[in-house]
Design a protein around this nucleic acid. Sequence first.
DNA 1: CAAATATAATAGTAATACTATCATTTTTGC
DNA 2: GCAAAAATGATAGTATTACTATTATATTTG
Lengths: 226, 226
Amino acid sequence: MKDLLLKFKIELPEGIYLKDPESSTLGKKIIEHSIILIEDIGFEHFNFKKLGKEIGSNESSIYRYFESKHKVLLYLTSWYWSWLEYQLVLETYSMTNIEEKLKKAIEIVTKTTEQDDKYTHINEVLLNQIVIEENSKSYLTKDVDTENEEGLFLPFKRVVHRLSDIIITYNSAYDYPLSLSSTIIVGSLKQHFIKKHFKSISNYDGDKNQTDFFTDLALKTLIKNG
Amino acid sequence: MKDLLLKFKIELPEGIYLKDPESSTLGKKIIEHSIILIEDIGFEHFNFKKLGKEIGSNESSIYRYFESKHKVLLYLTSWYWSWLEYQLVLETYSMTNIEEKLKKAIEIVTKTTEQDDKYTHINEVLLNQIVIEENSKSYLTKDVDTENEEGLFLPFKRVVHRLSDIIITYNSAYDYPLSLSSTIIVGSLKQHFIKKHFKSISNYDGDKNQTDFFTDLALKTLIKNG
DNA sequence: CAAATATAATAGTAATACTATCATTTTTGC
DNA sequence: GCAAAAATGATAGTATTACTATTATATTTG
């Protein structure tokens, strides 16, 4: 476990960037301020000219790191899913009570993100907002199948598999572990969005929240009835 | 019921169009070919110039019906949700067995759409594909709150409320009827997408499908345990 | 059949999402 | 300490997009 902790690095798919933004100060600034700017003005209004202005750098320099703004979005969402996978592994690894483990896993993938000070140039709270509001746009394109073959969605799919594995451990007879896993993970993002923008179709007031909703849903769905 | 059947007209929110496309031949052609074209090339690559070419009409004429391509997407998705609401009401209205009613409702909102010959200029099968691939883009914008206040998302929210009402009838003690309803409705779209593009994280093969998944999920979640 | 309305044609605009080229600055290896 | 290499910056240019504005022509209606 100590080994895992020390070694774990956010590994992103090849081909997402032209030059690794982790390899230079400018690269890190691009990531840091992409997060701030996209969260602020939205992905549609975001572009490299505006980003360049924010970081006092040139548009053309940013193009040396990413071939398009779409790839920046892919980088950010992939980073988020890798980071979430790490949380998931870290916090459930040593748990032996499988019900507690399942509950913990659901809590991690459904709760509102808190700041992680390990990565100084990345604001995880803002990044979580971006994932809630923009994640779908990273795969709702005509290029999805090509990019999927290139492995660009692996970090997301790995998280789905991790939760699915925990679901299987809890109830190996259940027919839809992957579907339930993806429904919880993606559904949670949608519920965050609904809570914020379409309040009238949500039931989260007072002490009720989406973690409770999904925990209740999963435990009842996975009940062993033979 | 006969009354409902006769009177039901797909009513869309004011302000979605400048001129009602149902009011002219050109308007209907705009809708018909928007569906065909968006399904074919995707919303990003769709524009009024290309659409004009398809229907042998001028770009400027289309702008008299819709102020932007975003509003066309809102029109199409709103039409879909209104149509789905109609199916939901029509097919569950007279059912007295509440479990059967719940099952029927879930089936309607999760199954793959079949052609409805009542509306000749609208291909519901293609429209369903558009909703699966593009629906999120209609609300994942910085204008979502303004447009929500203008009532542009009411058709979608009405469907969520209809299913939620059926859920409440089935189990009035359940804490999250709206959350469960929206999770099933939006989750179903995502599951269709996953089945098509991210097969490795789905459990739909052989006779297993998303209607079964969501039906099982809902019935277990809504079990009355006092 | 004239007036009103709908549609078409054309031109124009600011912004976008880049590419290409060349100049300058910074880093590095000896 | 310096030359070569690498990184960054500056500038210009391009095709496309998502429209607006204006004027002309066709169609409908009273």
